[in-house]
Design a protein around this nucleic acid. Sequence first.
DNA 1: GTTACTAGTTACCTTAATGAAACTATTATG
DNA 2: CATAATAGTTTCATTAAGGTAACTAGTAAC
Lengths: 124, 124
Amino acid sequence: MAKIKRDGVLREANCTEELLAMRDSLDVLGGKWKLMILRFLTNRTHQVIHFKKMQREIEGISAKMLSKELKDLEVNLLITRKVQDTKPITVAYSVTEYGKSVLPVTETLVQWGLNHREKIIESI
Amino acid sequence: MAKIKRDGVLREANCTEELLAMRDSLDVLGGKWKLMILRFLTNRTHQVIHFKKMQREIEGISAKMLSKELKDLEVNLLITRKVQDTKPITVAYSVTEYGKSVLPVTETLVQWGLNHREKIIESI
DNA sequence: GTTACTAGTTACCTTAATGAAACTATTATG
DNA sequence: CATAATAGTTTCATTAAGGTAACTAGTAAC
């Protein structure tokens, strides 16, 4: 296991410390939609993404949940929200550089999900 | 984006497909405790892990939740449960080989959590 | 003036998730 | 006989999560 420095001394990084780090991640990224939204936005950094577009393309999410989750992600500096002076007004959402740091997480989840589906299918 | 074969033709893997895979992962691994438990067990494949030990070392989990989550993980073939004929009886839990396939997921979450904590601290 | 689009918000409701504490059962120790 | 350890289960309660549908507000097209 890795060594880390704390309280001025080197000591063994114990499992507890790893679990606490994971708890931090899950507090910020956990729940049904946050990682989905981040993945969606990260896949489309070359496009302007509006609220309604996300609601249409992220299957199953309601306006209420989308609105709430977007606020949470913005507070944690993972996405930005920009009102555009169009008529009717539109709001452009995009991932921040920091938000892009979540990509390895969503990538492992996508890969695991694909593999899991294969495993389920071949077990029938 | 990667190409995948479906319906006998090659077509572009769209975001929807990635999101569906992630949805599958979250359905199996989501929630407050499952990834914590898997990480804990994966870190201790060289030890025998009993119910009470997990309850003591996974901070904040109750007997009820631990019991329920362990059942879910067992159903999905991610862990095994073995009753040992000791007095008092003990039950040994361990990750399966398939359960170990979740390691990349927990690893990225641990790393992201460590990085996130740093970022929070330096932003004060 | 009615319909439709944008981007949400609000109220109401149901279900899922979680927790605390008490409890069962077995066996051993003092 | 009381205490303590194992591995949970059960009951009761609360909180969090999530859904539906109606609604606001501004603007434009028909």
